[in-house]
Design a protein around this nucleic acid. Structure first.
Lengths: 187, 187
DNA sequence: TTTTAAATTGACTAATCAGTCAACAAAAGT
DNA sequence: ACTTTTGTTGACTGATTAGTCAATTTAAAA
């Protein structure tokens, strides 16, 4: 298997379990089952590995969030699909989701803001939100604020479903949670 | 001045600026203007310092959040005061707020969950939310979920006001933001 | 004043860590 | 077959780090 991928997987696991501060590169290569030196073949520095992993996962998440969204006609159902896609990805990829949470709230969040791929994806997402605002599906307030609020609510949703997995099939709870999400955003 | 306090202040600043992983104890004592050894007089280990700082700040925040709340009669105005107190504290104490965000999303969040003071404060807050549910001021859903959602929305609010400080005095925006907060929680 | 306890220093150490490198292996190209 | 490039190893190193400690100062108690 691709050793770069093995390293990224191992890094995700260890960073979430122990934090950036307590995860030496030696532990990462050991967990990945590769030699210590190879890490620096694929990544210039430890920081470089973290940033690449961060960008990779952010792209994976946003890609998944927008999955099948274009198959639906414009409307609130699109927003609901984005909502569902988001928390489902969080449940299916707990380690990756936790890594993103940790990185988003660390000093690394600054370091990826100017990354071309990230900038592009965000512009795309911004345009999406803007059309929603124009169509009066959501509040006409700052786009970044809206995005922030959305991700915050989705994170709470993932936390809640993790603590109580049964709720994932509890349509009453799902309706209530969606109501909270949409009531918050609607004009 | 109290050297323990100096160390905690320096630690808050550096952890936010550089992260846990890139802040050696030597840098903390240097920033605090004290000798390297004294840190280990007040704190058993570096981890102990982080946990104590984390608990201290969490207590300070929750204390401030509930400030003057008891002077108001029961009702939505109480909830609004909690909301205002929260984001105002975040604006007035940016470093502390950022530390809490970072710590809440790191491995340290697990380490303080069983701390007696924290447990007590949370029980108090939980009881508060429960009475709100009983009085039909907010949705009747899991209390922890509600708390999570509240803090998430407050974090977004602080971010937004930081990027655009003028909004703090923009009553139109404040009403809109409060509307988002309350619409999300109301039954 | 004398004695005891607590605070503070900074040089020191043992351990750890990020990153290097020479050697070797595998794959790809010619 | 032969050459070149790329991937891989693991021992090694220089720098850094958390934490110690004997010595000194400051404060408190008797």
């Amino acid at each position: 298997m691709d050793k770069r991928e093995l390293l990224l997987q191992a890094a995700t696991k260890l960073f979430v379990e122990r934090g950036f501060h307590a995860t030496p590169t030696s532990a990462i290569s050991k967990e990945a089952g590769v030699s210590a030196g190879i890490l620096f073949h694929y990544f210039k520095t430890k920081d470089d590995l973290i940033v690449q992993l961060y960008v990779d996962l952010k792209m994976e998440f946003t890609d998944c969030v927008l999955k099948d969204v274009d198959t639906l006609k414009a409307g609130i159902s699109k927003l609901r699909l984005i909502w569902t896609n988001s928390w489902k990805w969080g449940l299916e990829n707990p380690k990756k989701f936790d890594f993103l949470r940790q990185a988003d709230n660390s000093t690394y969040s600054e370091k990826i803001k100017s990354h071309p791929d990230i900038v592009k994806k965000y512009e795309w997402f911004f345009a999406y939100i803007d059309t929603y605002k124009e169509n009066r599906f959501i509040k006409n307030t700052d786009t970044l604020f809206i995005m922030n609020v959305m991700f915050g609510l989705i994170t709470s949703m993932v936390n809640q479903l993790r603590l109580n997995p049964k709720l994932e099939n509890d349509s009453l709870f799902l309706e209530q949670a969606w109501e909270m999400f949409y009531n918050c955003l609607k004009p």
